[in-house]
């Protein structure tokens, strides 16, 4: 393998943890999250020289991650969504483990675009405009989709909603 640019290696090590956490929320699965981050960093590696370094490339990497996730899901079709499984190897902490399962499960049951918009808005704290740009949709659509996704999640969580929003 050729020598990877030092600044790429530094960037990849610095950003991989955060990318992985976002990927876990998007995919709901440790192995798929790892694959998604690998693919994202591989794309960053291939285009490293062409990427504008005026700003830190971390934000761009997150855009690549979300778009790669959406493209993969489109390619695989929707058959895989219904067979999404929670990570078997994850260690559930004893306290409120049922609630965690429900929230992750709720996310997994949302349409892919809804899941992406919630993760961007409420995990990555992206603005509506940033979310819209990443998802390549108009801001008004991003706002509507975010609201709709929240309502769907609320409907899915049912009684757990009160517990979720109580703290």
């Amino acid at each position: 393998m050729g020598q990877a640019p030092a600044d790429y290696v530094e960037f990849a090590h610095a950003s991989s943890g955060r990318l992985f956490r976002t990927a876990c929320l998007l995919t709901g699965d440790w192995h798929r999250a790892e694959d998604l981050v690998q693919e994202t960093l591989a794309k960053m590696y291939r285009s490293w020289r062409r990427i504008s370094h005026d700003q830190p490339p971390v934000a761009y990497a997150h855009t690549v991650l979300v778009r790669t996730y959406l493209a993969q899901r489109r390619r695989l079709g929707f058959w895989e969504r219904v067979s999404d499984r929670l990570d078997d190897s994850a260690e559930a902490r004893p306290d409120r483990a049922d609630l965690r399962l429900t929230l992750l499960d709720g996310l997994a049951r949302l349409p892919v675009a809804d899941r992406a918009v919630l993760v961007l808005r409420y995990w990555e704290d992206r603005s509506v405009e940033e979310t819209a740009r990443i998802l390549r949709i108009p801001p008004a659509t991003a706002r509507t989709r975010s609201l709709r996704a929240l309502r769907r999640l609320r409907a899915l969580l049912g009684e757990d909603l009160a517990e979720l929003s109580a703290d």
Binding site: F20, R21, C24, L25, W30, A90, R100
Partner: peptide, 9 residues
């Protein structure tokens, strides 16, 4: 908190 369920990368 959900992320605490996942093993590190």
């Amino acid at each position: 908190e959900e992320l605490a369920r996942f093993a590190p990368p």
